[in-house]
Design a protein around this nucleic acid. Structure first.
Lengths: 219, 219
DNA sequence: AAAGTGGATATTGGATCCAATTTCGACTAG
DNA sequence: CTAGTCGAAATTGGATCCAATATCCACTTT
């Protein structure tokens, strides 16, 4: 029995999926553009088969839209969509926090604080990709602590849907520093087990980002 | 230009998907059983390719679980899962009703009443499949009236997840008649635009079915 | 007998090839 | 000049074939 020493060579449709996600959040695959399967396959050095399977996954997540015999196009995200996603997050994240907070162990809290530090560190390095992944890890440590897999899954879908815009949000240094303060506030509430304060902190956190992003969208 | 006169011959991976959904809700593909792609493909008279694409969709919806190089197995649904699904439905259906009720037009209401009549009719014929589809149509006429596509989509996923058990629920004639009463109560609330009453009716509706189904699961 | 090892078999992953459909442009008719 | 039609090219859908991995079983070793 050998331990997993190196990053396992994944099953390659996963590689395609990961790369396509990157293309989507960086905007290299811009909303509205049709996806040419063969071109994409060539670019990634694989055949069309794994590309098509990855597209089916992305379709399920709402990142691309599909019409039979017409193919896939990158989904557009309107301001209304954005607002809707954030409203659904409001409802579901509140539930996650209600359930999770009473269950939080000191170990959980420690992990969450470490994750917050990661966000800060990535922010100081101005590494946008790292900030977004660290930020996501931070929040989902809390959400997952609720122990409700279906809820976590749904929240992940909602976060995924607006990932494109989170990088935009974190591009502004002011936003990066504000996020740190908001994380600290949330952590303070978690430490004392104050559900209401935690929900409020998370709500304020969301409100700021949805405001910033929808401004960016409308202008 | 010819009008679409007959049910268009769909793109065949859709056919596979539809048939697999049927196999899942009827239990012919029972929870926990591994899915042999080739056997399934032979049975459906197609190659493995469309089967694999359909499986990716079902994986995204949580109906099957996937491990690289190990394949797909039909997902198990525990009582905890069931309770979680219903809790999420509670949160999201309440929101759908809050938004939809003030927007309901007389036309909407008429359609909803017709759908309720369909449920009753199918119930009298004791046609389980028709009852479940009519029941679903009834509820989603209301949910969709909210005009929130992402919410509708998420609710559909949650309903899909427990579709297996809804047929079980409707198998009992007592449940079928109770459902009709509950639908009438909901409609009465919709008619007078009473959001609170509508939410309450929907909640009672859910509570009865989750109770019946979880009893069936534990015994 | 228990545990580990090697290899045959079954199953999934991916590539290539062919069929079906759509798209787009040239051409014709009005 | 516009509308319509036909057909070639592009694109997706599906089938078949080969490769990679996992599973299972006989066999060896202690």
């Amino acid at each position: 029995m050998t331990a997993a020493l190196f990053t396992k060579p994944p099953t390659a449709q996963e590689a395609v999926l990961a790369e396509m996600r990157r293309l989507l959040v960086t905007g290299e695959l811009a909303p509205g553009t049709p996806i040419r399967q063969e071109a994409l396959a060539d670019r990634l050095g694989v055949s069309r088969v794994p590309v098509r399977e990855a597209l089916k996954v992305l379709e399920g997540e709402g990142h691309v839209e599909y019409s039979p015999h017409r193919g896939y196009v990158v989904a557009e995200l309107s301001v209304e969509d954005l607002v809707e996603v954030y409203r659904l997050r409001e409802l579901l994240e509140a539930e996650a926090i209600r359930v999770a907070v009473p269950k939080l162990t000191p170990t959980d809290l420690e992990a969450i604080e470490l994750a917050a530090a990661d966000v800060t560190a990535a922010g100081l390095r101005a590494d946008l990709a790292d900030v977004t992944t660290a930020n996501r890890a931070f929040h989902f440590l809390l959400f997952d602590a609720a122990g409700l897999p279906r809820l976590s899954r749904t929240l992940r879908q909602l976060w995924d849907a607006t990932d494109v815009y989170r990088s935009v949000y974190f591009a502004a240094p002011a936003n990066r520093s504000r996020v740190n303060d908001e994380h600290d506030e949330l952590i303070a509430a978690l430490r004392v087990g104050d559900v209401r304060a935690a929900i409020a902190a998370q709500a304020a956190h969301r409100a700021h980002s949805v405001e910033a992003v929808s401004n960016a969208l409308t202008t």
